[in-house]
């Protein structure tokens, strides 16, 4: 059976509409899998001794792992091909054992040059409420 995801339509995305996704807890296996999938083998993300010598308590997640979780929330909400742009700013590390709580909100619903667009503000935080990343996106959802 083919699963079909129902994306939100532009008409349903009034300003203030929100969506959430909680992922985790992050495991060291997630870090290793992400390293392999992304090709980013910075040892800070898998080598305990290297990470400690670099001044960290232990290996931590690639920023783009949390970035990927946040993009997953937006993609499954608005449609995977609806994005015009996505901008992610990294603020804090996520550690193995952390939850990643992603939240997104429509901040503008508008039409421009015949296209129906939304502007999104999103963030991901850990279970202690520390912000890990902030993001903005522009998307043209289905109508």
């Amino acid at each position: 059976m083919t699963i079909v995801i129902e994306y939100a339509k532009w008409e349903e995305l009034a300003e203030g509409t929100e969506q959430e996704l909680t992922v985790g807890p992050i495991t060291r296996t997630d870090l290793v899998r992400y390293a392999g999938a992304s090709g980013d083998f910075n040892p800070n993300h898998h080598d305990e001794i290297y990470a400690i010598r670099a001044g960290f308590d232990k290996p931590f997640a690639h920023g783009m792992l949390q970035g990927g979780y946040l993009a997953r929330l937006l993609s499954e909400w608005l449609g995977p091909d609806s994005f015009k742009n996505l901008k992610i700013r990294f603020s804090a590390q996520a550690w193995p054992g952390d939850m990643v709580i992603c939240k997104a909100r429509v901040v503008r619903q508008y039409e421009e040059a015949g296209e129906r667009l939304v502007e999104i503000e999103a963030s991901a935080a850990n279970q202690r409420g520390d912000v890990l990343i902030k993001a903005t996106a522009t998307a043209a959802p289905r109508t």
């Binding site: 901008k87 700013r89 990294f90």
Partner: peptide, 9 residues
């Protein structure tokens, strides 16, 4: 550090 990441589609 990776400070920011932006994509244009």
């Amino acid at each position: 550090l990776h400070g920011e990441q932006e994509f244009e589609y």
